[in-house]
Design a protein around this nucleic acid. Structure first.
Lengths: 211, 211
DNA sequence: AGCGAGTCTGAGCACAATCTGAGGAATTGC
DNA sequence: GCAATTCCTCAGATTGTGCTCAGACTCGCT
């Protein structure tokens, strides 16, 4: 739900389901804002924050926690958080606080989605294959994003349709074929390896020849 | 009481008992943090904040208010506050938030926004392309500012509208087109590279041809 | 080899998104 | 109050995206 809300505000969102992965993400890519829960599996939020700051990264962090006791808040902020929001909260407030926090961050560096030498740039609706930079239309972009998010797995045709056109959408097969074709022609230049494979009867899959 | 507490933390404190004096203080001297109540005599806190930001001062501001309704908080943050604290609050939390807010501001932000040979001068509402200096109207300026702040990324149309005209603004498409046209004609002289690109179905983007 | 369902291709149309020109309303400065 | 600037609106012109269709091609099966 949060992801949706943030994406509708123009952010692109990466999700981590436990503390370790959150930290790993935060250390590898560069983010505008990090929303951090405290109670997390594998590594709690405050530790994540501590390690992040130890690594001299000052990505803005908003702690989102059910703990609303004074000492918890103080500890959170003093661990290096930029803001502290207690659950339950109103969505509008979260969005406003995200705006407030990210407003001062100078260089927004939305993260790119990558598979091999194929890079997807949410910020500009472009993709890059090797050195080639290509512009994508909105629908092409959405489809490629879901494909590359699940790279290595097969994405069923109806999932693609749902992502690209919404739930009850009435999309003809030919139409999806049309976009697959468009994507293929953009992804695979002459002499390049085919990355977007058809899985007959099911859907499509981004992967390299082997595996 | 607040003054005591803050001074015991090593801050030196100046007190203003109404909004007008607060604004005057904030405009004349340079502060690490400003604690701002909303319900003030002579000029309410939000107006003070607004005028402060209009004067291009980005002193960190924490709003301290009894109003704890969602819309109030959102409005406060979107007016340019860095944090929002509802009364009653624990002293420790206030102190922690003051530390959090003052920690990050490394002094006043850079004055000119720059992308390639395009320079935006907030102080004078002017822009410079190469050697050419051009005056901008208020709306043109705001739009170009948000575009250049997120240079390299696509700024959705509704974000532009929100920045230029405020939240619930009712702005016709044609109107935005009008300003985009105005900006383009000012940014791109004859023979110069187009920097303001449209991304169909989404919005606009400042970037150079490649990348 | 022959069949059928599933998939792909080429060409072209329709429509909404975008852009333009011209001019009218609202502000602003003097 | 007037002139200049700024902002906004309307009515077409234009474009690119999304979409469709008919026919060709594949793959797996018997």
């Amino acid at each position: 739900m949060l992801r949706r809300a943030l994406e509708s505000e123009g952010h692109s969102v990466l999700l981590a389901y436990d503390g370790e992965r959150a930290l790993k993400l935060a250390l590898t890519a560069e983010f505008d804002v990090m929303l951090l829960d405290v109670m997390l599996p594998r590594m709690d939020g405050l530790t994540v924050l501590k390690k992040l700051r130890d690594a001299r990264l000052n990505t803005p962090v908003i702690i989102v926690s059910a703990r609303d006791a004074g000492p918890d808040i103080v500890q959170g902020l003093d661990s290096g958080a930029d803001d502290y929001l207690t659950k339950p909260f109103e969505l509008d407030i979260l969005l406003a606080r995200v705006r407030a926090v990210s407003r001062r961050a100078p260089g927004p560096q939305p993260t790119d989605l990558v598979f091999r030498d194929l890079k997807l740039k949410p910020a500009t609706y472009q993709m890059q294959r090797g050195g080639r930079m290509v512009a994508l239309t909105r629908t092409e972009y959405v489809l490629l994003e879901t494909l590359i998010r699940r790279a290595g797995t097969v994405v069923p045709r109806d999932v693609l349709i749902q992502e690209g056109w919404g739930l009850g959408a009435d999309v003809s097969d030919a139409n999806l074929y049309f976009f697959v074709r468009a994507l293929r022609s953009k992804i695979t230049g002459p002499g390049e390896e085919e990355l977007l494979h058809t899985v007959r009867g099911v859907g499509y899959s981004i992967r390299s020849q082997d595996c």
